[in-house]
Amino acid sequence: MPTDRPIVLFDLFGVIACHQRPGAMAEMAALSGARTEPFAHAYWACRMPYDAGQFTAPQYWTAVLNQLSLTAHPDTIEKLRLTDIHSWSRVDDDMVGYVQSLRERAEVALLSNIPADHADAFLTAQPWLRHLDHVAFSGKIQAAKPDPAAFHHCVTALHATPADFLFIDDRDENVRAARAAGMDGHLFTGREGLTRALDTWLPTPEATPSGNGRKPWPGPLARTWNW
């Protein structure tokens, strides 16, 4: 159950934003000169340090191409980088609206595994992010889920306690990590299930004798961001 200060902490991709655009992996493989299957393996094998801010974009793409025994030409790297950013650029507009509407009932924050250059592009294209109470991009905070440090960052940045949070993600390992950090967690499988979970978890709009005894949400506090 939440405290008197509920904070709903959202994952981005697979919840509010869409997963990678279909066909993008094959497009990037063709740009590199590799077949799609080995390219995809190298793409994901090298990804975590990039997500966690330990690799720059050129370092990441050089590592991918080296794993494929391909030469890392700067022009090729830039084409791959831009194609990759574009492949992760779509959002679910209905979810964006729903997430924004929740700020009438709670603080709303975001914790996303996303490289720093992707984060810059996503923020430019999606200015609604600036209206959330906190945004943490893994490439900027140098910690990627399910690393406990990513969740600790959000707790510290919002001057909260883990019990204040309900974390929402479409990956079970991330939800389990949030729970291990002391947060409540919800595995996202769709809007309907999320709505039921939030209606149960969030404070009631008004305190009533027949209510659950929680205090009404007093309103959002100061906003902070990490980008």
Rank of each mutant, 00 (worst) to 15 (best):
K140Y: 05
L31G: 04
A143C: 09
R47A: 11
P205H: 04
S138G: 02
P58D: 10
P38V: 02
A106G: 13
G97F: 14
F13W: 11
A136Y: 05
F10V: 08
S87K: 06
L202V: 00
I77A: 14
L80W: 14
D199C: 01
A29S: 05
S89F: 05
H134G: 03
F122M: 07
P203V: 00
D94L: 14
I16D: 14
T83L: 13
I16P: 14
P162E: 00
L12R: 04
G193L: 04
S138R: 01
T124A: 10
V91F: 15
R21H: 13
A149Y: 04
D184K: 10
T56L: 13
H153D: 04
G182S: 05
T208W: 00
K145V: 08
A57N: 03
D120R: 12
D170H: 03
D184W: 09
R191N: 00
V8Y: 01
S69Q: 06
R191S: 00
G97W: 13
R81M: 10
M28W: 10
V8P: 01
D92Y: 01
S138Q: 02
D117N: 12
T62P: 11
S32P: 05
A40C: 07
R5T: 09
F165T: 05
F151V: 08
A180S: 10
R191W: 00
A34V: 03
M183K: 07
D133Q: 08
N226Q: 07
H134C: 06
A150R: 04
T62S: 12
G182N: 06
Q142H: 10
E78S: 09
